[in-house]
Amino acid sequence: MKAVCWWGMEDVRVAEVPEPTIEHTTDAIVRVTSTAICGSDLHLYGVLAPYLRQGDVLGHEFMGIVEEVGSGVGTLEPGDRVVVPFNISCGRCWMCARGLFAQCETTQNTEQGKGASLFGYTSLYGSVPGGQAEYVRVPHADFGPVEVRHGLPDERYVFLSDILPTAWQAVDHAGVNGNDTLAVLGLGPVGQLAVRSAVHRGVGRVIGVDLVGDRLDLARSSGAEVVDLSGVDDVADALRELTDGRGPDAVIDAVGMEAHGNPISEQAIKAAARMPKAIARAAIEHGGIDRLAALHTAVDAVRRGGTLSVSGVYGGSADPMPMMDLFDKGLTIRMGQCHVRRWTDELLDIVDADDDVLGLESFATHHGALEDAPDLYRTFRDKHDGCLKVVLQP
Rank of each mutant, 00 (worst) to 15 (best):
G330A: 05
L308A: 07
I264T: 14
G312A: 08
M324K: 15
A273E: 09
G204Q: 10
G8D: 12
V199E: 06
C338Q: 06
G359A: 01
L58P: 10
T75A: 11
L388S: 04
I37F: 05
D237V: 13
E68V: 02
R341E: 10
P320S: 12
Q54M: 11
H384K: 14
Q108A: 15
V184S: 08
V69K: 01
V190D: 06
F119E: 05
V84F: 04
L370G: 00
L76M: 05
V171Y: 11
P85G: 08
R334L: 14
V390C: 09
P394S: 01
V227P: 02
E241G: 03
R53H: 10
T344E: 10
T122N: 07
F101V: 09
D355A: 09
H200E: 12
E155T: 13
H367F: 14
H384M: 14
R205T: 03
C5R: 00
L152S: 15
S197T: 14
V128W: 00
W7G: 11
G115E: 09
S221M: 05
V310A: 10
P394M: 04
P374Y: 03
G306N: 04
D228T: 07
P20M: 05
V57E: 01
H296C: 03
L52A: 06
S317I: 01
F62Y: 12
G131P: 02
S309K: 06
G306V: 06
S117R: 13
R205S: 05
V148C: 01
C90W: 04
P189Q: 08
G315M: 14
L48P: 11
T332G: 06
G64C: 03
G208T: 06
L185F: 13
L100K: 13
V32A: 03
V73F: 05
N177H: 13
G72Q: 08
G39F: 02
A259E: 00
R31A: 11
E241T: 08
V310Y: 12
D253G: 01
A272G: 09
V209Y: 03
A219L: 03
T365A: 02
D355W: 11
L388P: 04
G99Y: 02
I289E: 12
E68C: 02
E285N: 15
G202F: 07
V84E: 01
A183C: 06
H60A: 06
A133F: 02
P263V: 14
A250C: 10
G306E: 07
D290P: 04
L52V: 08
V17Q: 06
D382S: 11
K389T: 08
G316D: 10
S197N: 03
E155D: 13
V136T: 06
Q169V: 05
Q108P: 10
A283G: 07
S161D: 02
R281Q: 15
G312R: 05
E10H: 12
L193N: 01
L118H: 08
